[in-house]
């Protein structure tokens, strides 16, 4: 194999993987705290993409600047979905954890509603944002690096570091970690558990709001784009370790690089299937994921 093509594939894989990891962060955070697998994760990303598109299309806001709108909007939507739709289910449960299946079915319903409402409202058209300026490729030696992708991948790492730091060192972050570890004990320590859940869900969705804005220059909005990203995020999170923030990035990088390198040998579709094979292989060796606690 040509070393140039291989290193080109690795660089692109790292960028793509970083983006996967960034998109998966919210899924991992929400699972880590609420023990809820948010099947609608990709749908929230789809909504962020549309929001970013309409900001640009209707208001002429630069896609990157549209994060000022998408981040708070997605936080609010996440907060709302958790406190109005998912919370009653959690309140019914007596045990320390939510019945995984009922929560999954519920978020599955949220996914169906969001995707179909998007299809009705926006139609099946593909909508892409055009940056009003030209971003030349950065040259890494002989390898061209796409700047928008680089921005999104670096943002993923920055957000992961920031969120980890905030969870570890802030008063609110400590309350979130306490709730994740033992929600009854958290409540008995004076923590408003339903509010922590809503804030965490909102935060997970706000991260998607950011990435919706960051990937909009190269990923067009369609009503069905969510599912593929949702499933990819799920694979990334399980591979990296459910609930682990660094695991999300590492899982993303592993999948990204593997796919990019494999697609040098086989078609992209087969590469995606191979990455599922890798996924199963890693889980056989480390059932809790790369960064997960066994």
């Amino acid at each position: 194999m040509d070393p140039f093509i291989l290193s080109f594939a690795v660089v692109n894989g790292l960028l793509q993987g970083g983006i996967y990891g960034g998109i998966a962060l919210g899924l991992s955070l929400i699972f880590g705290v609420l023990r809820v697998v948010n099947f609608a994760h990709g749908s929230f990303l789809m909504l962020s993409l549309y929001l970013s598109f309409w900001c640009w299309n209707l208001l002429g806001i630069d896609p990157y600047l549209s994060a000022i709108v998408t981040v708070p909007a997605m936080f609010a939507l996440g907060y709302f979905v958790q406190s109005v739709i998912i919370s009653p289910l959690i309140r019914r449960e007596r045990a320390l954890v939510v019945e995984p299946l009922s929560a999954l079915l519920l978020t599955c319903g949220v996914f169906l509603v969001l995707d179909n409402v998007a299809l009705m409202a926006f139609g099946p058209d593909v909508r892409s944002v055009q940056l009003s300026y030209y971003l030349p490729s950065l040259m890494l030696g002989p390898i061209p690096v796409n700047i928008p992708r680089l921005i999104a991948a670096l943002a993923a790492i920055l957000v992961a570091v920031g969120v980890s730091f905030w969870l570890r060192h802030s008063h609110a972050g400590r309350a979130i970690r306490a709730t994740a570890q033992n929600r009854d004990a958290a409540a008995m320590s004076g923590i408003d558990v339903p509010k922590v859940y809503a804030v965490t869900f909102g935060l997970g969705c706000a991260i998607l709001g950011l990435f919706g804005a960051l990937i909009s220059p190269f990923i067009p909005a369609t009503p069905t784009i969510g599912l593929a990203f949702g499933i990819k995020s799920f694979i990334v999170v399980v591979l990296g370790g459910m609930g682990s923030i660094p695991g999300s990035i590492i899982g993303g990088l592993v999948i990204g690089v593997f796919e990019a390198v494999a697609s040098q040998f086989v078609t992209a579709t087969s590469a995606a299937i191979f990455s599922l094979g890798l996924f199963i292989l890693v889980l056989l060796v480390r059932p809790a994921g790369i960064m997960g606690k066994a």
Partner: peptide, 24 residues
């Protein structure tokens, strides 16, 4: 305020953090 049956500590946190959660 109660100290619950079976302690119910935040096992992955330090002692200091456990105490600080109490002062939420």
């Amino acid at each position: 305020v109660q100290s619950p049956e079976g302690k119910q500590l935040f096992a992955d946190m330090t002692i200091l953090e456990n105490l600080m959660v109490g002062a939420h």
